[in-house]
Amino acid sequence: MASGGQKADVTVGVLALQGAFSEHVQLLRQAAQILDSKDAVKRHWAFLEVRTPAELASCDALIIPGGESTTMSLVAQRSQMLEPLRDFVKVLRKPTWGTCAGLILLAESANRTKQGGQELIGGLDVRVNRNHFGRQIESFQANLDLPFLKQADGKDFDTTQQPFRAIFIRAPIVEKLLPRVAGPQEGEAKVEGTVVAPSRPIDEQVAKSVKLGDVEVMGILPGRSAALKDDATKEKLDAEAGDIIAVRQANVFGTSFHPELTGDPRIHVWWLEQVRQWTEGAVHP
């Protein structure tokens, strides 16, 4: 939380409708301390649990945590949060990071949803495959090489050369990178068993400073899908090439694993640094 009751320079919300939001808040606090110890200029960060449109409106950036995406989506709808979230991510293009369930909600297209589908927020031109690896018994940990941590802007992350111990719980993966289109992903809507997010055009003012490029692949998990038992899933993927488990497109970042379950704040430090640059109007990716 902001110290000394001063107005915060940057307010980061964590969507607290359901799931592991408290874990993100804890890591954000750690990450802010690390950034503070490195930068000459101290910033007043505020970290906020977000359950209402008013709380969301006070945020400069947002994390959508792990949890059950079906639950979050339904609760968001019934709490009048769905449209404000779409505005935040797609119209105002504020920095947003989704982990696991959060990644699903931020995808423009998702498959293997519950019968009758589910509402998505969208923002990332990707298709995610829910519960890709199977049920809980297939949940696992893996050491990941994340290039963006190594290249983090010359910043001295103490353990830069260490792999990131990533935890995958009934995790989704990015099954397909989609072309950027004006309007909804209509091609995707025709694919059997997928749901797509509704399109929301970017705000005209915001569009002057934000360039919406293609989706960047930020992390790969090698070789895991090659061991999958489910042949139908395997066929659709180039399993040997590895699974896409981290992506970014303009303001939106998504990981299919749970950095919030690891005692390792490196990704939170990196992301807060991105948020700082974004809110200070530096060049947007």
């Binding site: 592991a20 949890g67 696992f140 935890i167 719980i169 379950l261």
Partner: peptide, 17 residues
């Protein structure tokens, strides 16, 4: 230790539900 982290991880994902 790794297996217990994955087990408690799912419980954490259920919180607030």
């Amino acid at each position: 230790e790794s297996s217990f982290t994955v087990k408690t991880g799912l419980a954490r994902m259920l919180k607030g539900g």
